[in-house]
Amino acid sequence: MIVTQNQISSMPLHSIQPLSPTAVLGLWHLTETPADLWAGLPNPEAYQLLLPATANATRQAQWLAGRRLIHRLLQESPSPPQARAVVQNDATGRPWLAGAAPDTVVSLSHSGAWVAAVLAQGGRVGVDVEIIRDKAQRLASKFLAPAEWADAQAATHAAPDAGSAHYTLLWSAKESLYKLAAQRGIIFRQQLLLHSFSPQESGEIPATLVLSGAETRHSICYTQPAPGYVLTYCHEPAR
């Protein structure tokens, strides 16, 4: 069941969606100023030390909203309350939760006015939200394998008006798979492979991840949180 903003009292969230008994997806429609976001952020003294010094007001708001969202998702976790948990970033920029249960995993993304996060107990997660624009289509040859590019050209030939949206979706799906893989140095057009699918407003994209000579199959969910945006995400419980 998706819990919408109208059902969430005193919280400026857009939605909270359980993905499994151990994972939850949250969306935040960003309308607040940095000052508004600081006011409701747990452990502000820790975050004041972590806020990027070069972030302008827009980036600060996105950064703070991401942390507010993750703390809200922690309330949905089956683990005991983690009042002193702090969202940090590792050397590769991936977020992790200091002070949380050891098996807590999180993925975070922001673009424009939207922030998305997936939090889970165990397993692997990846999430990405993107503003639809023509950049992905212009750079398609750099991140799409030949078969993927051929599929994309066929799809956009059938629906010319969907060109930018379709290529942005493909880029976003690879971003979510990249975050799921949690390894540096991955070549998008060789190691993150998307298979044929019928584009709809929401659905799933079958994918293959190629790491260390081994291939694994995955499924990337996608939807549109609002006009002009795409959202992709994946969660794989611990085995």
Rank of each mutant, 00 (worst) to 15 (best):
A116N: 10
A23Q: 02
H14F: 13
P78R: 02
P80E: 10
T58G: 14
E32F: 10
R67H: 07
T31W: 02
S77N: 07
V115H: 00
R239I: 08
V3N: 00
W171C: 04
L50T: 12
S141K: 15
L170A: 02
E76Q: 14
L194G: 13
L27R: 11
A207W: 00
R72K: 11
S176K: 00
V115Y: 00
P237C: 06
R138T: 05
V127H: 02
T54I: 13
P102N: 08
L169T: 11
A162T: 03
L177K: 11
S77E: 06
Q224H: 15
G112Y: 05
Y167N: 07
E76A: 14
P21T: 02
P52K: 06
G66H: 01
Q7I: 04
E236K: 00
P81M: 01
H14A: 15
A152E: 08
S109T: 10
L177A: 04
T33G: 01
Q224E: 15
A214M: 12
H235F: 14
A85S: 09
S10Q: 13
D36H: 02
P52M: 04
L69C: 06
R138W: 05
S15G: 05
C221A: 13
S20K: 00
V127S: 04
L30M: 09
A150I: 12
G122M: 01
S196I: 12
A35I: 08
Q191E: 15
I2V: 15
T232G: 07
E32G: 08
G112L: 02
Y167S: 05
T92D: 12
R84K: 10
I131E: 13
W28F: 05
G203Q: 11
S111E: 05
T54G: 11
Y229V: 11
V106M: 09
N6E: 15
A39R: 10
R68V: 08
V210N: 09
Q60E: 11
T22K: 00
E130I: 02
N89T: 10
P95D: 08
I70H: 01
R94D: 08
T232L: 03
P146K: 04
W38G: 03
A120Q: 01
D90H: 01
W149C: 08
L73T: 08
Y47D: 02
I186Q: 13
Q60T: 06
A155S: 13
I205M: 07
D134C: 10
Q75E: 12
S15I: 05
L69E: 03
T223E: 14
R124D: 10
A120M: 02
R68Y: 06
I2A: 13
Q137P: 05
Q190I: 01
T92P: 00
S212G: 13
R189P: 08
A116Y: 07
I186A: 09
R184S: 15
G163R: 09
A140R: 13
I16Q: 03
A159Q: 15
E204D: 10
P146F: 04
V230N: 03
L192E: 08
S9A: 10
A150H: 14
S107A: 09
H14L: 15
G185N: 08
A214T: 14
A207N: 07
H29W: 13
E76W: 09
P102W: 07
S196E: 15
T58Q: 15
Q82W: 04
L144I: 03
L50D: 15
A113S: 14
G26V: 01
